[in-house]
C-alpha cells in the first residue's frame, strides 16, 4: 500500500479531529464525574500531611 501525502492529510483531518474531540470529552467527564470528587480531594490533601515513613 502506498502511503501518500493526500492520504495522510485526509486521515489527520478526519480521524485525528474526532480522536481529539473524543479524548477531550473523556477527560472532562472523568475530571468532573461527581463520585471522583472524594478521591481527588483526598489526594490533594494527603500530600500536605507529614509522610514520615512508607506504609509497608
Amino acid at each position: 500500500m502506498n502511503i501518500d501525502h493526500e492520504m495522510l492529510v485526509g486521515f489527520a483531518k478526519s480521524y485525528g479531529l474526532f480522536y481529539l474531540l473524543g479524548l477531550s470529552i473523556l477527560v472532562l467527564v472523568y475530571s468532573f464525574w461527581p463520585s471522583n470528587k472524594k478521591p481527588f480531594d483526598h489526594a490533594a490533601k494527603s500530600i500536605i500531611e507529614d509522610e514520615d515513613r512508607p506504609w509497608k
Binding site: V27, Y30, S31, F32, K37, F40, D41, A43, A44, K45, I47, I48
Partner: peptide, 9 residues
C-alpha cells in the same frame, strides 16, 4: 492543597 485538583487533571 492545590486549588483545583480537577483542573490539574
Amino acid at each position: 492543597p492545590i486549588y483545583s485538583y480537577r483542573m490539574s487533571i
